[in-house]
């Protein structure tokens, strides 16, 4: 078990190294440069001075080694367009994204699993088809389009929800304020993820329902509800947990767009701005952090597997 864990971690570190190198060379080869240099009215002299200050005139290989060395010591450098250290900036944005993504995830799991179970129990009936159709539809809508439509409806027409931001500016912090701001972005984000969870929960449940031990339980005369709760669901959890690992990258990608639409001050918006402004240290930090989150979650999920289902043994 420990050997397995350390091997996975080691592989994860190797993957992170690959990700960081690939990203660094990619973004530095991209045309353009930090937005302070790439300005319609900047002169050659101004650009030369800034390049010198930012150390951008040194060879790219050397710059990568510098970045790597500093990053290994926990120093992520300063944002080129903000002049501020990257780490606290990222920490703050990550908290905001975690709040949004966490809420969406919670919504998705509650509704997704419930709908999935419902749908599985009514297999083949109109309800099953309807759930299937609605969730497929959810998967088919562009999230920025959905977001725009919701803003037009709930903020502009009905004056019901704030159109953007995380908190009302100038008002003292309150939970209700946070929640009304959270509602639309979290709904859009979860609506897009919902279909996967519904379908997954449905098929996971169907699969175990046909397993021998469920049939045995049923044949013992247990009521359907008891069969479902005591036997089927317990085993269906495994693939549902696995689902988390799969939708996490989707969740992070989805938050990029949703944060842009609703002006949510999270990591996704930071990443887009950094890409547009060629803010190299910020791009590096967000990409490596996103990769680390995905890798660690995957390892955790595999461990969870063995806890939920003792039959899964990691050698």
């Amino acid at each position: 078990m420990l050997g397995y864990l350390s091997r996975r971690l080691l592989q994860g570190i190797l993957v992170m190294f690959l990700v960081s190198a690939a990203t660094f060379f990619l973004i530095n080869l991209a045309p353009g440069g930090p937005s302070s240099l790439m300005n319609l009215n900047s002169t050659a002299q101004q650009r030369a001075a800034l390049e010198q200050q930012l150390g951008l005139n040194r060879p790219i290989f050397l710059r990568y080694l510098n970045w790597l060395g500093a990053a290994l010591q926990g120093r992520l450098g300063n944002s080129l367009s903000q002049g501020e250290p990257v780490a606290p900036l990222l920490a703050q944005r990550l908290r905001h994204t975690a709040l949004l993504a966490g809420t969406a995830l919670l919504l998705v799991f509650i509704f997704g699993v419930a709908l999935g179970i419902w749908s599985a129990r009514k297999r083949g009936r109109p309800i099953d088809h309807l759930v299937g159709l609605v969730s497929t539809l959810g998967m088919s809508l562009p999230e920025f389009w959905l977001g725009t439509l919701l803003i037009m409806l709930f903020s502009v027409r009905l004056h019901f929800l704030p159109a953007s931001g995380m908190l009302t500016v100038g008002a003292p912090w309150s939970l209700s304020d946070l929640l009304v701001h959270l509602l639309m972005p979290a709904l859009v984000l979860s609506f897009v993820l919902l279909p996967n969870v519904v379908r997954f929960a449905r098929s996971a449940l169907l699969e175990v329902m046909e397993a021998d031990y469920v049939r045995t339980a049923r044949s013992k005369g247990l009521r359907e509800r008891a069969v479902l709760l005591r036997h089927a669901l317990r085993n269906a959890w495994i693939p549902i947990i696995a689902m988390l690992g799969l939708i996490l990258p989707q969740l992070l990608s989805g938050s990029v767009v949703v944060e842009s639409v609703f002006a949510w001050p999270g990591m996704g918006r930071l990443a887009v701005q950094a890409a547009m402004n060629r803010d190299y240290p910020v791009i590096m930090a967000t990409t490596v952090l996103a990769a680390a989150i995905v890798i660690l979650t995957n390892i955790l999920i595999d461990l969870l597997y063995s806890l939920v289902d003792p039959r899964v043994v990691h050698a």
Binding site: I151, S155, V156, A163, S164, G165, G170, S260
Partner: peptide, 17 residues
């Protein structure tokens, strides 16, 4: 107070709301 709103449509929506 200055609110940071990158999207022009969102600014109009906030204004109209």
């Amino acid at each position: 107070l200055f609110k940071i709103i990158p999207n022009a449509n969102t600014q109009v929506a906030e204004m109209l709301s």
